[in-house]
Design a protein around this nucleic acid. Structure first.
Length: 257
DNA sequence: GTTGAGCGTT
């Protein structure tokens, strides 16, 4: 039986959920079943997948029938290397519906009398909305899934073998790129002044004028309006710091208005 | 260019 999670959540009333973290992105429930079933009666295995791509998200939920077996599985499988990755097995802390969970066991199925004053629960947030929100927020791997998604199953051992280099990359600076923001900001500001849009406006302005019925024609206006939060607070002292070149400034102003 | 903190579906 390897149809876990295919028929939705089964009877989770008397099951003990285990959270398996740090599994590979290609590890499926079928791969985890033999491992976990050796230590007890596995009722169900569920691996959350992305709605967009359908790939696993790197963790799984294993439900045991008895607590002692689940505990044993946690003790035995926690830290075990599966598919080259050290997995982390622990008791689930939250239920599928955010129920109270103690040691992986669901105590009650969302009792209405709780400490939370959820008066009528007016939050009718659909799954689609919350899904894309949390998925897109957490999974930053949506940067280039478009093209690599289809080719991710291609042969890659050769590439890795070729890439074997003793030169370790420079960690620390790989992810730190915020320091460039200041420079960019300054550059951008300077460019705004020197390179006034009036120089290149003749063409762009002309192209905007004739197409009045364009549905997206009101984008520039709104975008510009949104960029200036408060025009009055720009110069608290009465003398705007941006007043450097009256001619260029006036040009920009005329463009803005 | 091959990701990696985390808590779940019919």
């Amino acid at each position: 039986m390897s149809h876990f999670g295919r028929s939705g959540p089964p009877d989770i009333t008397d099951t003990y959920s285990l959270l398996v973290l740090n599994i590979t992105f290609r590890t499926t429930a079928d791969d985890l079943f033999p491992l976990f079933d050796k230590y007890g009666k596995v009722v169900d295995i569920f691996i959350p997948k992305d709605r967009r791509t359908g790939d696993s998200r790197g963790f799984a939920f294993v439900r045991y029938k008895y607590a002692d077996e689940a505990q044993k599985a946690v003790d035995r499988l926690d830290g075990r290397v599966v598919d080259g990755r050290e997995i982390t097995v622990q008791f689930a802390k939250y239920g599928p519906n955010a129920e109270m969970i103690s040691k992986g066991r669901i105590i009650e199925s969302v009792p209405r009398s709780k400490f939370r004053s959820r008066s009528r629960s007016p939050r009718r947030r659909h799954q689609d909305d919350y899904y894309r929100d949390r998925d897109y927020r957490r999974s930053h791997r949506s940067r280039s899934y478009d093209r690599y998604e289809r080719d991710r199953y291609r042969e890659r051992s050769r590439y890795y073998r070729r890439r074997s280099r003793s030169r370790s990359a420079s960690p620390g600076y790989s992810k730190g790129r915020a320091r460039r923001r200041y420079d960019d900001d300054r550059q951008s500001g300077s460019r705004s002044m020197s390179a006034s849009p009036a120089r290149h406006s003749p063409s762009s302005r002309k192209s905007l004028s004739p197409h009045k019925a364009s549905p997206r024609g009101e984008s520039p206006e709104r975008s510009f309006d949104g960029r200036s939060p408060s025009p009055r607070s720009v110069s608290p002292r009465g003398r705007p710091a941006d007043s450097r070149s009256p001619s260029q400034n006036s040009d920009v102003m005329s463009f803005a208005f």
